[in-house]
């Protein structure tokens, strides 16, 4: 029993690391379908990876803290200390800001304090936004995050049955994407919190262009804001599933290929 569990851990590790053969991958998918604890392990693992990506988003750049100047008399480069060396950067924060920023900060603080006082008096909490609340993800944000990791999927389905089963397990309805010469389904990723806890993302390629589809249950009547930035969003409902297609194409490419899957495929 312990050996079997160890074996499953090794399979999941290899799966996450992209070291599984096709046969091992199929075996792991079978195991996850048969055993809820394996499915839970796999899902926890995928979500932990997605969480690491969120928590350790690389900064846009880490610039060199010093300006390196070539002195006309010196044979090599000379080093000039930064105006605000990193260790003193926090202390230097106030020094580098213009006065209008202090005024704006003071106004915000004053408004906040006033709101708090009013709020305490009224016994409600409508004036003070929660400080722990983080801005929710947007379609554009998810698209940008996927782009940053080169649209590499978190996992893939190897055939239509797996594809339909995954949708059915997650949303209660199955669907498949018909094959087309100009469209390649790359795989799946997560977009936790965009529409709900189960939001799934399909990554596709068409003529070298990346296409992202968000999937939700149509009965939930949730919607996502168009991404903007020259990206277009199209939507379609198929078999109780609501698909949003986001790409820079004027017309939907993948949506017309989506077909309902027979219920048998969606079963456990």
């Amino acid at each position: 029993m312990t050996d079997a569990r160890e074996n499953i851990h090794e399979l999941i590790d290899a799966y996450l690391d992209g070291r599984l053969s096709k046969e091992q991958h199929a075996r792991l998918l079978d195991l996850s379908r048969q055993d809820h604890s394996v499915a839970a392990m796999m899902d926890a693992a995928r979500r932990a990876e997605a969480s690491l990506h969120r928590s350790f988003t690389l900064p846009a750049d880490v610039p060199l803290p010093t300006s390196i100047e070539r002195s006309p008399t010196a044979s090599g480069p000379s080093l000039r200390r930064p105006t605000h060396p990193p260790a003193a950067r926090k202390a230097g924060f106030l020094r580098s800001r213009p006065r209008w920023m202090y005024a704006a900060a003071a106004a915000i603080l004053l408004t906040g304090a006033l709101a708090y006082m009013l709020n305490s008096g009224m016994g409600g909490s409508w004036l003070i936004p929660s400080t722990s609340a983080r801005p929710g993800p947007t379609a554009a944000g998810v698209y940008a995050a996927l782009k940053k990791k080169s649209f590499r999927p978190a996992f893939i389905c190897e055939n239509d049955e797996q594809f339909a089963s995954f949708l059915a397990e997650r949303f209660g309805h199955g669907a498949v994407i018909q094959r087309a010469d100009n469209v390649r389904i790359v795989g799946w990723d997560y977009a936790d919190g965009l529409l709900g806890e189960a939001t799934a993302v399909i990554l596709a390629l068409s003529e070298g262009k990346n296409i992202v589809l968000f999937v939700d249950e149509s009965r939930c009547k949730r919607s996502i804001a168009p991404p903007g930035n020259g990206m277009n969003m199209h939507r379609a409902v198929v078999n109780g599933l609501l698909f949003y297609e986001i790409s820079d194409s004027a017309e939907p490419v993948v949506l017309p290929l989506i077909r309902p899957a027979p219920p048998i495929l969606g079963g456990q």
Binding site: H36, A40, A44, R46, R47, D192, G193
Partner: peptide, 15 residues
């Protein structure tokens, strides 16, 4: 997270 590994509460807490 639920039995199926789904996020039940907010993502921030999971993170």
């Amino acid at each position: 997270i639920s039995r199926a590994g789904n996020l039940l509460d907010d993502q921030a807490v999971f993170d």
